[in-house]
């Protein structure tokens, strides 16, 4: 009996699964924590908008969640050998993550998915995000800054003290405009005025970026359509495999009458803004 000898690998394999050491896992405010892991390649090669799939530990007397949990990358730093996440303590998975301490380890799979794309011709981009969605947009702002683009960052939150990562956007040279529910500045009408103001001032962005929220998506889709500005949005969906195998993470895209189901983990999580449907 003869068996065909397998040939050498013919695909690049930039996705790895590994237990990474926890360097820190500190509260940022009442709702959010900041997790820092020690990581090498390919983890630190993650591009803005890509995500990792985390095998959350057991904790608080609760069994470990069976599925991994997708978490968008907050910072991937090849020089420092660090991978960072910013997360909201919400469900079973993130509560389990919340119990990690420096010295523990966390099994991480990634980097996964398709991130944001920056067109080299763009000179000025606008990012509009809210809450923990800003964690996904911060690396994008830094990448845009590194490519010499100007950035307008509208950072929305429930309260002024909950605005995430304003300093990081500022450090990337962004024009930072914090808006919050406290004083009504985060209301769609006000955001609309800010966006239109940019156009009137001859400072219209070449592209807009957002994350998560339906309300912000609707606003930017309308803005993009009226002024011919392209955009990208990072969306969320429940995931099991994270690698395009199970088709549990599909969402409708494109033509409203005959939408196409795409996998958020594989075809996204970043999609063309105009093709994205609210969920």
């Amino acid at each position: 009996m003869t068996i065909v000898q397998p040939r050498k690998a013919i695909f690049p394999r930039p996705v790895a699964e590994q237990a990474l050491a926890v360097l820190a896992n500190d509260p940022v405010n009442d709702d959010y924590k900041h997790l820092v892991l020690q990581a090498g390649q390919p983890f630190t090669q993650a591009q803005p908008g890509q995500f990792f799939h985390l095998l959350c530990p057991s904790g608080d007397g609760l069994a470990a969640p069976y599925f991994r949990r997708p978490m968008s990358c907050y910072r991937a730093d090849p020089q420092a050998g660090r991978l960072e996440f910013l997360y909201k303590l919400a469900g079973r998975g993130t509560r389990a993550l919340g119990g990690l301490h420096a010295g523990d380890s966390l099994n991480v799979l990634g980097p996964l998915g398709k991130g944001f794309r920056l067109h080299p011709d763009w000179r000025h981009i606008l990012v509009l995000g809210r809450g923990v969605g800003l964690a996904t947009l911060a690396p994008l702002a830094e990448a845009a800054c590194a490519s010499g683009m100007r950035i307008t960052a509208i950072l929305s939150a429930r309260r002024h003290d909950l605005v995430m990562s304003a300093e990081r956007f500022a450090a990337a040279g962004a024009d930072v405009l914090p808006v919050h529910d406290d004083d009504g500045s985060s209301a769609p009408e006000n955001l609309h005025q800010i966006l239109e103001g940019l156009v009137q001032a001859g400072n219209a962005p070449d592209a807009v970026f957002s994350c998560g929220s339906n309300r912000l998506l609707r606003l930017l889709q309308d803005y993009g359509r009226r002024h011919g500005i392209p955009g990208q949005v990072a969306v969320e969906q429940q995931m099991a495999c994270g690698l395009g195998m199970c088709f549990c993470c599909v969402r409708p895209f494109g033509d409203a009458a005959a939408p196409e189901h795409r996998r958020v983990c594989w075809d996204g999580p970043v999609f063309d803004m105009q093709e994205t449907h609210e969920c």
């Binding site: 009996m1 068996i3 065909v4 397998p6 040939r7 050498k8 690998a9 695909f11 690049p12 394999r13 930039p14 996705v15 790895a16 699964e17 495999c241 690698l243 395009g244 195998m245 199970c246 594989w266």
Partner: peptide
């Protein structure tokens, strides 16, 4: 059919994406 080893994916739990993780020829 002769298989080089007895391990294969179950239907619906495999996709090309795994080529990023290991050598599918295994």
């Amino acid at each position: 059919l002769t298989l080089q080893n007895p391990v294969m994916p179950a239907s619906g739990t495999f996709a090309e994406g795994l080529a990023r993780v290991f050598d599918l020829n295994d």
